[in-house]
Simulated assay, not measured.
Amino acid sequence: MSLILRIPYNVAVRSFSSTLVRDTKQWRVSQGLPANRNAEGILTDGPDYTFLDGRPTPLLHKQKLRMLKQREYAAQIVEMCAELDFAKERHQNLLKAEAEEKQKYIESRLKPKGNMLSRNSKK
């Protein structure tokens, strides 16, 4: 007796892939694509609809979040650049002050007196 399995025509058969999600993400990154294919693109960034009279469409929730995150990043960048400029300027001022102090010390050393002084002034 042989057993015959029959699959009804209305049952969907799913095939599966043995490729790991990690490998797929690595491949996407190696190709210069974002790791998550839904992270950006025309379908994600574009509006869901447009008005026929040309009015701008309101931003979606995730678009607003992305915009706020980008503003936050920009504010952090500006703040860090200002801190970096301040640190560079302070370092230059410290070097200049150190050089002035060294020059002041050299100028305040003892001067030769007597015949040595009169010889230098006659020349």
Rank of each mutant, 00 (worst) to 15 (best):
P56Q: 08
N36Y: 06
L33I: 02
R28S: 05
Y49M: 13
F16P: 04
L43G: 10
A39C: 03
I42N: 10
K25G: 00
G46W: 01
R55W: 03
F51G: 02
F16S: 11
V13Y: 00
D48P: 03
P47Y: 03
T57Q: 04
F51Y: 14
S15P: 01
R22M: 11
N36H: 07
V21G: 05
Q31P: 01
D45K: 15
K25N: 03
V29W: 01
G46A: 01
P8G: 08
F16V: 10
V29Q: 03
R22S: 10
N38C: 06
R6N: 14
V13S: 08
T44Q: 14
N10D: 11
A12I: 12
Q31G: 02
P8E: 12
G54W: 02
G54E: 04
P34E: 04
G46V: 01
R28M: 06
D23W: 04
S30R: 07
G54S: 09
D23T: 11
N38L: 11
R37C: 06
S17C: 15
D23Y: 06
D23A: 11
L20P: 01
A39H: 01
W27N: 08
V11M: 14
W27H: 12
S18C: 08
Y9E: 10
T50A: 09
Y49C: 09
E40T: 09
R6A: 14
P34T: 05
A12R: 13
D23R: 08
T19R: 07
T19F: 06
T57K: 05
T44V: 09
P47T: 14
T44K: 15
S30M: 07
P56E: 07
T19I: 14
D45M: 13
D48G: 15
L52G: 15
P56D: 12
T19G: 06
R28D: 01
V11I: 15
V13A: 08
P34Q: 05
A35D: 08
G41M: 07
T24C: 11
